[in-house]
Design a protein around this nucleic acid. Structure first.
Lengths: 233, 233
DNA sequence: GTCAAGAAGATTGTCGACAATCGACAGAAC
DNA sequence: GTTCTGTCGATTGTCGACAATCTTCTTGAC
């Protein structure tokens, strides 16, 4: 009963289970970069042909993307890139507030120290990317910041819940391009949240995060409403 | 451009997309009825042979069950019925509190009237099932009650979030058999929640629901801890 | 007796093919 | 001109088979 658990992992275990995951990544990128637009159809055979593999892994990847909310499926009709509506975004942000606020409260109740390093790094990253004028990467840093809060909450289920809505959130952000006219704004709006966490004030942290996400919610929905009006006009 | 929207639907739309869904149902029942125990392996070929169909739909059903949390998959090793730990249950209930409390608050903020009928019916159902001594069906009525709150919250995403943790919650309840010694207790513990909703008091409703789920959380984890101790002793 | 190496069996990952279903178009009936 | 019906092409749903991988059992050395 020796049970050698890890006999010296010298080489990183290369993703031999990676085909499906790879397809997921490819489709995700295509959607988030706008090469696939909301409402577009994803034909299994077409994607399979382009990638030079069979329909099975493509199909499985599509199912995974469905559960992550990036695509929707209709029986006997296939997969489509999810249509984004103002109402959906609003609902999404309401759920985000509910989950992330609970997470940050729990984070501060525990030991926030390990999280602070990563959180600080993300904010600095947003500043750098603002100077580099790279709004897309900035959005990714934003998502990473919020994910870190869930990750260090001590309740791993907050992370899975966050992940299940993260992609759709990111999609809505990518669609509108940029949130604020001043690229530095994004980093600034995260500072109060960071400060409250660093001060180990659970109530203040919750309030700051709720305000932060709530503001983003208003800004995003407003911009999106305008976009829709122009689009359908 | 006449666009007749619904020219008298005489026939109910029959589920033509049923095979995978049917398999999902079968496996779900097997797990929730205890015929498949946590840790058990789900072999695609075995299930496919038993059901008299190919592996494809079985595989797809397993993937769906994975995202609903009832099974977990390991690359190149297949699917297993999810192991339930005390920590997982505790995390689960914490997330439930966070989601359902937000849902009930929003429900009361809107018009709670349409929800009340269904909620009342579920509580009555729990009483009937207590007399009939049917704890399994009672658990289903319990889940239905909580799902109704999310359903009538006005934010459909609360429902999807709830559904993604509902099966696992139900599994933990099924595993411990019955929550309270007195079967009537389950119905009783829902009354304060119902009353607060009926009174249209959002804060009271949130508090009542938080107390209700919080109590269940303590009871379930306690029972489960005892079960584990006996099991491993 | 313990442990490592190898063979055999079982199971998943992937593939190409067929059947069922859907959407669009053309033609007939009114 | 409008509406219904039948056909056609395209796509999904399902299947059986093969290759890659994991598990288990056996074998052999120490």
């Amino acid at each position: 009963m020796s049970m050698n658990p890890a006999p010296d992992p010298i080489f990183a275990r290369l993703d031999r289970a990676g085909l499906v995951q790879h397809v997921v990544r490819l489709i995700t990128d295509a959607i988030l970069q706008g090469r696939l637009k909301p409402g577009d159809r994803l034909t299994e055979s077409g994607i399979a042909r382009e990638l030079g593999l069979s329909r099975a892994p493509v199909r499985e990847a599509a199912r995974l993307l469905e559960n992550r909310g990036l695509v929707v499926s209709q029986p006997n009709r296939g997969f489509f890139v999810r249509e984004v509506t103002v109402e959906a975004i609003d609902s999404l942000y309401e759920l985000r507030i509910c989950i992330e606020c609970a997470a940050v409260e729990r984070l501060v109740a525990g030991d926030p120290a390990p999280a602070l390093i990563g959180l600080r790094a993300r904010i600095d990253e947003m500043r750098d990317l603002a100077e580099a004028d790279d709004p897309l990467s900035q959005i990714e840093a934003d998502m990473a910041f919020h994910r870190l809060i869930c990750l260090h909450s001590g309740n791993e289920r907050f992370v899975t819940a966050f992940d299940q809505i993260a992609d759709e959130t990111q999609l809505s952000l990518m669609l509108i391009g940029r949130l604020y006219d001043d690229p530095m704004r994004m980093a600034e709006t995260h500072e109060p949240v960071f400060d409250a966490i660093a001060a180990r004030d659970a109530q203040a942290a919750r309030a700051a995060l709720e305000y932060h996400i709530g503001t983003a919610r208003r800004v995003v929905t407003d911009i999106f409403r305008k976009l829709k009006e122009d689009g359908s006009a």
